[in-house]
């Protein structure tokens, strides 16, 4: 019977001490513990969120970078292509010009050769005429014996000259 009959003294002390530890623990233990647990959870949650945000930001930056890179690559390709075209154009233009120049020089050369040739021919003709005159003088001087022979000779010379 004693086992199931609450003792007044035990009831009193239990009530006193349980209330005491309830109040003291509430103020000095549970309040700071629960408060810091909550804070810690909040900070962890925030950290996770900010990590997620950073990840997104990174992904965005990476995508941007790739876009910029792709653009740059395109730009470079275009520039190279343009440069090649320009080079080829320049070369072909230069070649064209050189050809024309060469042709012009050759033409000029031809013309001048022709004139030179005419000049030479004229010179030769003059020289031949002079030579003929000199020869004729010599012949006349030496043998003006026979007119027939003279005539024959003159004809012969003339014929020869014409051939030239």
């Amino acid at each position: 019977m004693e086992l199931v009959t609450p003792n007044v003294g035990t009831l009193f002390w239990m009530l006193l001490f349980f209330s005491l530890i309830l109040l003291i623990l509430k103020k000095f233990a549970w309040k700071p513990i629960l408060h810091s647990l909550k804070n810690r959870e909040k900070s962890i949650e925030e950290a996770l969120q900010s990590a997620e945000r950073a990840k997104e930001e990174m992904a965005r930056l990476k995508a941007d970078n790739e876009k910029i890179l792709a653009e740059a690559r395109l730009e470079r390709d275009k520039m190279i292509r343009e440069a090649r075209e320009t080079r080829e154009k320049l070369i072909s233009e230069a070649q064209e010009k050189a050809k024309e120049e060469a042709k012009r020089i050759i033409d000029q050369a031809k013309v001048s050769i022709e004139t030179e040739k005419q000049n030479a021919i004229n010179e030769i003709k003059l020289q031949i005429a002079l030579l003929s005159v000199q020869m004729a003088e010599k012949i006349i001087a030496e043998k003006i014996n026979t007119t027939d022979k003279q005539n024959e000779l003159i004809d012969k010379y003339l014929k020869d000259m014409k051939l030239n």
């Binding site: 003291i24 623990l25 000095f28 233990a29 549970w30 309040k31 700071p32 513990i33 810091s36 647990l37």
Partner: peptide, 9 residues
């Protein structure tokens, strides 16, 4: 629990 609470703080 008070010593634990102190550590938490």
């Amino acid at each position: 629990f008070i010593s634990i609470a102190r550590r938490y703080q």
